Each structure stands twice: as C-alpha cells, then as structure tokens.
Computed example of a mutant assay.
Amino acid sequence: MTNQKSLFLGLIVGGVIGSVSALLSTPSSGREFRDQIKGNREKLEEIIVRLKNDSIALKEQLVKTAKESSEVVKEVSTDLQQSVKEWREEIAPHQQNLQKEIAEIEEKMKQLEQTLQK
C-alpha cells in the first residue's frame, strides 16, 4: 500500500513540476501560448476529420472493388469452364482416332510378335 501511495505522490509531484517548468520556460506569454495551443488543437481536429473522411472513402472503395472483383472472378470462371468444354469437344474426335490408331498399332505388334515366334 505504501508503494502505491509513493508512486501516486511521485506522479503528481512530477506532473506539477513538469507543468510549471513548461509554463516558465515557454518563450511566449500565457495568452500567446493559449492561442498556439488553440491553433494546434484546431489543426489536429482538421487532420482527424480528414482522416475520418479518407478512411470512409477507402472503406467504400474496398467494398466496391471487392464486389467488382467477385463479378470478374465469376465471369472468368464461367469463360474458363466454357473454354474447357469446347476444348474437350474439339479433341474428342482426335482422341477417338488416336485410340483407334493405338489399338491398330498394338494389333500389328501382336502380329509381328507372332510372325517372329514362328
């Protein structure tokens, strides 16, 4: 309990000493210092408002971009599926011809083997 009181007392005394030294070491009068603080506060408020507006605009842009990209992905997926389907339809006759030729080659190899075994 004593350590907490000592810490609290030290923080208060340090804060008071810091405040007094800041006021005494300022190169301007109290009125000028208050005006500077007020001006700085107004600038800070403007920056905060600007940041808030920019963040809202950024959020809206992100939502819009996400929707657009979702649509694009769907379109590309549909196009890709259609392309694969067309490709399969195009190669089907060739595939059948190749299978037929492979079967003929296998048959000829069997005949050749039988001829060589005789």
Rank of each mutant, 00 (worst) to 15 (best):
M1T: 08
M1F: 07
N3Q: 15
Q4I: 13
K5N: 04
G10E: 10
G10D: 09
L11C: 05
I12A: 05
I12P: 00
G14V: 01
G15M: 02
V20I: 15
Q36N: 13
K38L: 14
G39Q: 14
E42Y: 07
K43D: 14
K43T: 11
L44H: 07
E46W: 03
I47Y: 09
I47H: 08
V49W: 03
L51E: 13
N53F: 09
I56C: 00
A57Y: 05
K59V: 04
Q61W: 05
Q61I: 04
L62R: 15
K64F: 09
K64S: 13
E68Q: 14
S70C: 10
S70G: 15
S70W: 06
V73M: 15
E75N: 12
E75C: 03
V76F: 07
V76K: 14
D79M: 10
Q81V: 09
S83V: 06
K85V: 04
E86F: 00
R88D: 14
R88W: 03
Q95P: 00
N97W: 09
N97Y: 10
N97K: 15
N97E: 15
L98Y: 09
I102W: 02
I102S: 04
A103W: 01
I105F: 08
I105D: 05
E107P: 00
E107W: 00
M109S: 13
E113K: 14
T115N: 13
Q117T: 11
